[in-house]
């Protein structure tokens, strides 16, 4: 067992300072991912800085946006009236993740930071560039059924497992960050990164930086939305492929659209080109099919995950149809 020290931070400042100056220190929120990783020896912090006493749980709305504190529980966000009224896509995505018990512990910040579920990352006897840089990628030639079809590198083909992230990238959220050098904001789409040569880095958060909140500006995507998650069983399983779809309709005309996919890349995958192709068009299965083809351009499968090349576009069409209310 690894020995570690546990500290409960009472102010944001001490939480950040403690974590910034100690290379082996990490924040802990709900602990639903970090504790698992520690038990398996994948992550070995020597100091845990518990942030649960920081005042970052609030969900409120002002000046045309919803602000969700980083410590808001996944279940609290999914049940929140403001979220249900204004950003129902986010609530749907959260409810598609994990189980009720986990959502009652898991926080928004922790969800954003959760690590991949690649089995080679989890098995410390296997090579994995994300867990142990330079050791190789076991999945590249191995059992890669759950893996990426977009944006991978020869160092890593793992995917980001979060459902919530798919909705947040579609909704153009903004991440609020506090760090040893001050505060900053990052567009959600730039928060996570592609593996490139540094697959050990999931995102662009610097050492000691704390996610404090996520903000979503009000938008017209509160009516025709759907989060479709395709998985091996009906609940309590990570996505093979998921799609977050939101339409702004004027009668049958698409005035605006937001589209993103999960389970296909190292980061939540926004489908900007497909969105462009849909704006101004009339709602129909044919239109959605064309957009889905555009969305899949550049996708490439591996030995065991090529089914995603078909499942992906089918899921996009289904999600858009459900969002639009056509069957």
């Amino acid at each position: 067992m690894i020995q570690f020290q546990y500290i409960r931070a009472s102010t944001q400042k001490t939480a950040i300072e403690t974590t910034a100056k100690d290379a082996t220190a990490m924040f802990i929120a709900g602990g639903t991912n970090l504790v698992d990783l520690m038990k398996r020896g994948i992550t070995t912090p020597q100091k845990l800085v518990d942030i649960n006493n920081l005042p970052l749980k609030n969900i409120d709305a002002s000046t045309g946006r919803i602000r969700i504190g980083a410590l808001a529980l996944n279940s609290a966000v999914a049940e929140n009236k403001l979220v249900l009224d204004r950003q129902p896509l986010l609530a749907q995505a959260l409810n598609a993740g994990a189980s009720a018990q986990l959502r009652n512990m898991a926080t928004v910040g922790g969800n954003m930071m959760q690590r991949t579920r690649c089995p080679y990352f989890y098995d410390t006897a296997m090579p994995c560039n994300k867990r142990e840089p330079g050791s190789g990628c076991g999945a590249l030639e191995g059992f890669n059924r759950m893996h990426a079809i977009f944006g991978f590198s020869d160092k890593c083909i793992a995917v980001n497992p979060s459902d919530m992230n798919v909705a947040l990238v579609a909704l153009d959220a903004t991440v609020h960050i506090a760090g040893p050098k001050g505060n900053r904001t990052v567009p959600f789409i730039n928060f996570h990164r592609l593996p490139g040569d540094l697959p050990q880095k999931d995102n662009n958060l610097e050492k000691g930086e704390l996610i404090t909140a996520v903000e979503i500006a009000d938008n017209p995507f509160n009516k025709h939305v759907h989060y479709l998650k395709i998985r091996d069983r009906a609940s309590y399983a990570f996505a093979l492929v998921s799609v977050a779809a939101a339409l702004h309709l004027d009668g049958n005309t698409i005035k605006g659209v937001r589209l993103a996919m999960g389970g296909v890349a190292h980061k939540p995958w926004r489908l900007t080109e497909a969105e462009k192709a849909l704006v101004g068009k009339t709602v129909s299965e044919g239109t959605f099919r064309q957009a889905a083809e555009i969305a899949m351009q550049g996708a490439k499968g591996f030995k065991y995950n090529s089914f995603k090349l078909k499942m992906g576009p089918n899921a996009i069409v289904e999600a858009l149809k459900t969002a639009a209310g056509i069957v």
């Binding site: 059924r145 395709i230 091996d232 093979l240 065991y304 995950n305 089914f307 078909k310 499942m311």
Partner: peptide, 9 residues
């Protein structure tokens, strides 16, 4: 078995 979705595509 198992009858997983990938086998149908």
């Amino acid at each position: 078995l198992p009858l997983t979705p990938d086998k149908f595509l």
